[in-house]
Every structure is written in C-alpha cells, then in structure tokens.
Design a protein around this nucleic acid. Structure first.
Length: 793
DNA sequence: AGCACGCCGACT
DNA sequence: GTCGGCGTGCTC
C-alpha cells in the first residue's frame, strides 16, 4: 500500500503530496501523523490518502514511523485543509499544523555520532551526543567537518515528538478482599503502615484500583506501596491522566426564556433536528440573553447525540464565561484557549478527539476541534476581528465554521449585539436567517450615554486627558463607592518624542513608526517589531535638551488619575501589565472583588466583562481608531464604543457612559451614543456603497515586500499589470501604493487591493501570481495574498 | 525549508 | 592543494 503524505516543509516547491510505501508492520490511516525520510533528512508528515498503486517512476521510500495510536486528523479535517489551502493561499502543511495542538509540532535535531574507533576515543564524543545546532566554537566546527569528510563521523537526523502524556501510578489488587483480611491478621502489629494498607484493601476493596495520589492521601507511603508490589499484593500500572485546566463547578438549570428567546431557539432547534446547514445571525443587544439561547440550543444537539462547538473571542474567554457553559454541561465540556499550558491543551484536545467531550468552548483555532458528529456551531461576538488570523495561514473562523456546518449538515449561529456589516448584509439578502432579540432579559434600561466634545471642554488635570465633566462624574462614583471603567486604546506613556528645537521625531530603526515612550521601564518601544532603546535625555539629532513626549497612552492617564484622585485605587490593564501568565485573570478578579475603584485599560477591557458595581464607563478618546485608513474604521469604532458602553450598569444600579471625542458629529460616534445599531448599519452601508467597499465588493490584498524598496515597487507594478490584463470591470484594482506603515521589520511593503464582485478565475490567477513570485524570491521578494483582509494598512 | 553539489577566489 | 563563499536544483 502507498501513502500520500504532506511533509512538514513549508515551502512552495514542497506544497504537494509525496508518496511513500507503507511497510506491512505499520498501520496507516488517513490523518495519521508519520515520520518519513525526505532527502537526506527525516521529517514529520501527515497522511492525506492511502492507495494501492503509484505513478511515481522513481523508487518509493518506506514510511518510518506512525507517531500516534489514533490518527490526529479526521478525514473531515484532511479534506478541509485542502479546500482551505486553495481558498486562502496558504501551504497545506501550515494549515494542518494550525489544526493541531502545538505539542504535535515536531522537534528536529541533528546529532553527530562517531563512525570509527579513533573517533570514539575523542573527547568530543565523551559526554552527551553532540547537537550540531548548538555547535559554536570555530575549533570544534572545523574538527566536525574534518571527521565528516573522512567518514569518521556521521549525522543522525532525529524527529522528536513533544507530545507527552501525563502518567500516574495506579495499583490493582492481585488478591481477594478475604485474602487481604487474612494477611492483615497475620502481619505483625508494628508494621503499622502495611497494616493500614491491608485494612484499606480489605475494607474498601470495591474502590480499587486506586491511584498513588489517593493512597498517599490515606497516609500510605510510596515505600509501603513498593513493598506491597514486591510481595505480590498489588500490581502497579502506569495510567494516563488528563491534565484538566478547569475545576468542576456547581451545575445550573436552564432559565426561563422570554418570547423572543424562545422563538429564536425554536427556529434553530428545528434545523438541528432537521440536519439543515443553515447560518443564523442572532442580533441581540447587550443583556438580551443570547448566552441562554446558545446553552439551550447546545442541550438540544446533545439530546440528539450530537456534539456542539462554541467559539468565543480569546479576550472574552474569561473564567466567567467558561464556568457558565461548564455549569450546564459539566464534564462533557472541553476548553481550548491560549491561557492553557501546552499539556492541558493537548489533553483537552485528546478528550475531544476520543469523543469524551461533546461540547467544545474555545477561541479562534478551536474551530478545528476534531469533533466528528457536530450538531451545532456557535460563534459569539461574531463581529470580532480576532476571528480572522492576521498571520499565515490567514483563515477566518467564520468561513471555516460555514464549511464545517455544510459538511455536518448542522446549523451555525453567529451572535452579536453589533453584527459585522458583512454578516448583517447577508442576513438582509436572506443568505443568513436573521433572528433578533430586542428586549433586555432583565429589562434594565440602557445606560445613559453622554458625548464630551474635547474641542470645547475644560480639562481637569495637567495632561489634558481628562475633562472636567468626566472628572466630576468619576469623583461622584468614588464617593458612592461604586466602580469606574476607563478605556484608552493606546498603551505606553506617550506615543512619540518630538524635539522642539529641530522637529526631530524618534523612529524605530526597523519600521516606519515613531517609538512609544514607556515610563515604567524607561524605554522607547516599537509596538510593531518590539525594538527598544533607552529614553533619550537630549535630542539624538541636534543634541538639544528641549525634547517633549507627546500623545497619550494608558501609563500617562494612570499618572493623571493618581494626581486627580489620590485616594482612589487604580488598576491598569494593557499588554504591558498582562504579559505574565495569569495576570489578566488576577487584575479582573481583584477588580471584581472591589479591591480597586478604577480599571483603566485598552480594548481588552471592552468585551464581555460583567461587574455589577461598575456604574460609570469613560472613553478617554473615542477617535483613536476613527481616522485609520481602513474602510472599516467607522465600524470598528462603533463596535468598540457600543461594547464598552454595555459594561455600565449591568445590575440594578443605573449606569452612565461618558465618551470624550473631537468628532461628536461623526455618525459612528453619535449613533454609538444612541446605541442604534440598525441606523448605523443603514448609514454605513451607504458609505460602503459609495466607496465600492465590502460588503458590496469582495476584496483581496496582494502585498509585496523586500529589503530594497525599488524591488518591491517594481514587482508590485508587474503584478498590477498582470491583474489588469486579466480582470474586467466592475473589478477595481487599487495601487500599488506603499503600505500605511511602509517599512516594517526592515522590509518595505507595497500593496495592491483588488475589489471585485464576480471574477471566476481570480483565485486561479492569484495562485499563478504567487507561483511566479516564488521564482523571483531569490531577490528577497515576498508576495503575500490576503483574501478579505481585516486591515488594509 | 534545508541539504548537497558545483564552481570560483583566498588562504595554510 | 583545500577551505569556504553562495548560486542552483531536488526532495516520493
């Protein structure tokens, strides 16, 4: 038999199947993870087909090893990887690797082994095997080369599997309860440890086998267990134990639904039962009880013996959210997100693969969860940009979910208070079925939202970040012992350094961006490539002392708050304060327990948080994202403001929202004030229509990058000409133009945007362009294609 | 990608 | 002579 294998070499020329002969002693299935010889080396690969004969004219090599006892990929995922690779211009192997937990990525090592008696005696081979990757000393490198040339040493290529299972010792009784009782009586009284074990064996026989952990907690030492094993009382076996990221929680019961919720649920459940692959858009204001609809729909799928998958943005995958699902479905739930350790992730994933978890809750990549009997897929907060991966492979979880819903003939629910324009438009056209929840479940009033026009307002502090009305409102809440959330979409202290003498702005040496000043670490940082340097005291250009740090970041606002409200406790939450594992959780827990009065953060505080004592939400500057050169800047701003406004007054206390802005008349901002999604949708659709933007047009972004700016530009123009030759109106080709950040990590970027309605051969043409680009890659050029980009910058 | 082969210039 | 630079071609 012959296996078709996709090898773990992410390159254009290797992005196809390679065939291998399957030795008789190996059991290979579609989806098996294998190790194969590839040229001189060995690499990991995935079997995508098994067949009887091959057209290959050369000599087929043998598969070396099947890594896992159960193929990690299902036939569905193998098929999906092929379709997706074509759709998003990614290597198939990159997609296969993103489908699996990180520990299933192989580790490759090259070690040096002696090949002659003389070499064996050398001190080089005295210790551990020589790893050629960490060979640094020039003297040794030379020696190794000589040995290899003379054939006195050879290289061994290793493929290591990082996936490790946690094993625990479990003790099985070898005798009967009566036997143990008898031995107990015969054992001398001074052997109290052994007697304790025997007593437990006799008295609690039915509970065996017991794990070492259980027995130790009974006060039985491992030495005693060793004795028991040697006396043939017990047998020790290694048993796999799942590393569980969550603790059991108290169960919850389904809540009563209002009529809107009930109607939505019954519509979805009809298609769960009927096995219809229908996409629903569940549009429901904050607090309208979408989650309860999800949970009851999941119950319906489970009742039919089918599994359910629920995607949540990483940021709102808080313990609160996970607990809700667990409370309803208990041990059947598996959780997949980035806060898990590698081991926990692997074990949760295996529980799913083995059919031991029927409900999966996870972030973007969980859309590939190996559930093989899906009855329902849910994407909560479907408008979230994070569902699209912004590096390769650039897949959108929504598109993958639609593919899977078709494969499994099951419904897909997209839920949001502020649906993406694309989804809302599809619902309008009837492609998706629109379900609306207009009432808040607990019928609280929506919070009052005020706009503060920064052009005509007095500032309270010395930094001109917080206006007097906002400061007064904060003061009032502090006096009432209520809590405040403040949003500022920019971290750091000041976002650029300007010299007042010569006008010099300190920029990143690798990127076309100003460096942000971080006061706590006294560094100037590039938020794109991570470059850092010390904060200058004099202008690096003219050596003048008159340097200023302008712009506002969370650190500066925190200082100003401390100055205005010296008695208040302030928590800051941004990438800088949440870098360490668990710190995100710690800050939220601390704020939830009312250990602080003000939570100041970037957009990570806007989503999903539910703190009943928060009665004021302030937005320091609503305009930070408004004028970005992206067609969806207004949509992003409206979403962010609406979401953050939803954080105020979620319990019985009345909430208030204050938005500081220089653009109170901009529709994205005043419609967010009114929290009128439908009006925003109508207005934004007009704007998109006028600008020939999505959802009226599809978009593809072709970006060309190179170390040398001319090379990038030249190639970009060449691609443009090719596109122009093949594509016809109404297709619009924009650019090439330097990207908004024209240089990033020392690479110059040029971009072409293609907007089209129907171009049957576009996909094929773009693949052709990608192939040609591969040929010019020698000159250091990279061509990347992003279908439906989230950012065109 | 990464490894080898092959061809040229500069050293022990 | 040989070491090492990188251009080119291949991996079932």
């Amino acid at each position: 038999m012959i296996a078709e294998v996709i090898v773990d070499v992410a390159a254009h020329q290797t992005d196809r199947v390679f065939e291998y002969h399957i030795p008789d002693d190996l059991e290979v299935e579609i989806g098996s993870r294998v190790v194969v010889p590839f040229g001189r080396r060995k690499v990991q690969g995935f079997v995508v087909a098994v067949k009887k004969s091959s057209d290959f004219t050369g000599q087929l090599k043998d598969l070396l090893l099947v890594v896992d006892e159960m193929p990690p990929l299902t036939p569905e995922l193998v098929a999906l990887s092929s379709d997706l690779a074509r759709q998003i211009f990614a290597y198939r192997i990159s997609i296969l690797k993103t489908m699996l937990p990180g520990v299933m990525r192989a580790n490759y090592r090259k070690i040096l082994l002696p090949n002659s008696p003389r070499a064996e005696q050398m001190p080089l081979f005295a210790g551990d095997p020589v790893d050629l990757a960490n060979l640094e000393e020039p003297r040794l490198i030379k020696l190794v080369k000589q040995l290899l040339n003379k054939g006195e040493a050879r290289i061994e290529y290793l493929v290591e599997n990082k996936a490790k299972k946690k094993l625990v010792s479990v003790y099985y009784p070898l005798l009967s309860a009566a036997d143990y009782q008898e031995i107990f009586l015969e054992t001398r009284k001074t052997a109290s440890q052994q007697r304790k074990l025997l007593a437990d064996l006799a008295g609690d026989f039915a509970a065996y086998p017991k794990s070492r952990e259980e027995l130790t907690s009974l006060g039985i030492s491992s030495a005693t267990l060793k004795t028991a094993v040697s006396k043939k009382w017990l047998q020790e076996k290694d048993q796999e134990k799942y590393r569980r990221p969550t603790k059991p929680v108290a169960p919850s019961r389904p809540l009563d639904l209002n009529d809107e919720q009930a109607a939505a649920l019954s519509r979805v459940s009809q298609d769960i039962k009927g096995r219809v692959s229908q996409t629903f858009l569940l549009e429901g204001v904050t607090g309208s009880g979408k989650t309860e609809v999800y949970l009851q729909a999941i119950s319906q799928a489970l009742a039919l013996g089918r599994a359910a998958l629920m995607l949540v943005p990483e940021i709102s995958l808080t313990p609160q959210m996970v607990k809700q699902v667990q409370a309803r479905f208990g041990q059947q739930v598996a959780v997949l997100h980035s806060a898990l350790s590698e081991g926990e992730r692997y074990d949760e994933w295996r529980r799913i693969r083995r059919g031991q978890a029927q409900v999966v809750v996870g972030a973007r990549s969980a859309v590939f969860a190996p559930l093989d009997n899906l009855g329902l897929i849910i994407i909560d907060e479907e408008h979230e940009g994070s569902y699209k991966q912004d590096n390769n492979p650039r897949y959108h979880a929504r598109d993958v979910a639609i593919w899977r819903s078709r494969y499994h003939h099951c419904p897909l629910i997209l839920g949001s208070a502020t649906p993406s324009l694309a989804s809302r438009a599809r619902a309008q056209k009837g492609v998706y079925q629109l379900l609306r929840l207009k009432k808040r479940a607990k019928s609280q009033p929506l919070p009052r939202v005020d706009l503060l026009d920064l052009k005509h307002v007095q500032f309270a502090g010395s930094q001109f970040d917080i206006s007097c009305p906002l400061a007064e409102a904060i003061q009032k809440r502090l006096e009432k012992k209520e809590q405040v959330i403040l949003l500022l979409n920019r971290r750091g202290f000041a976002n650029f350094m300007l010299c007042r003498n010569c006008g010099f702005v300190l920029k990143c040496p690798n990127c076309d961006l100003s460096l942000t000043m971080h006061k706590d670490t006294c560094t100037m940082q590039c938020h794109y490539c991570g470059y850092q340097e010390a904060v200058p005291e004099i202008c690096p250009n003219c050596r003048d002392r008159q340097i200023r740090f302008l712009g506002t970041g969370t650190q500066k606002v925190q200082e100003e708050l401390a100055e205005l409200f010296p008695q208040a406790k302030i928590l800051r939450m941004d990438v800088d304060t949440t870098r360490r594992k668990g710190s995100y959780d710690k800050i939220l827990t601390s704020f939830g327990q009312e250990e602080a009065d003000i939570l100041l953060g970037t957009q990570m505080i806007a989503k999903g948080l539910d703190f009943p004592n928060v009665t004021l939400v302030g937005v320091i500057n609503a305009d930070t994202g408004l004028w970005l050169p992206d067609y969806n800047a207004s949509e992003r701003t409206f979403e962010l403001l609406t979401q953050v406004a939803g954080r105020a007054g979620r319990a019985d206390k009345e909430g208030q929202v204050m938005i500081q802005t220089y653009n109170p008349d901009h529709y994205a901002i005043h419609l967010a004030q009114k929290q009128d999604y439908e009006l925003f949708y109508a207005k934004e659709m007009q704007v998109r229509h006028a600008g020939d933007y999505p959802p009226y047009f599809y978009t593809v972004l072709v970006s060309v990058s190179a170390k040398n700016e001319q090379n990038a530009a030249r190639e970009a123009f060449k691609i443009k000409r090719q596109l122009q030759r093949e594509l016809r109106a109404p297709t619009i080709i924009l650019g090439p133009a330097p990207a908004t950040i024209s240089r990033l990590k020392s690479q110059y970027y040029y971009q072409i945007l293609v907007k089209y309605k129907r171009e049957k051969h576009l996909n094929e043409l773009l693949h052709q362009i990608q192939d040609q680009a591969q040929e010019v890659k020698k000159y250091g050029l990279t061509v990347e294609i992003d279908s439906e980009p989230e950012r065109i910058m």
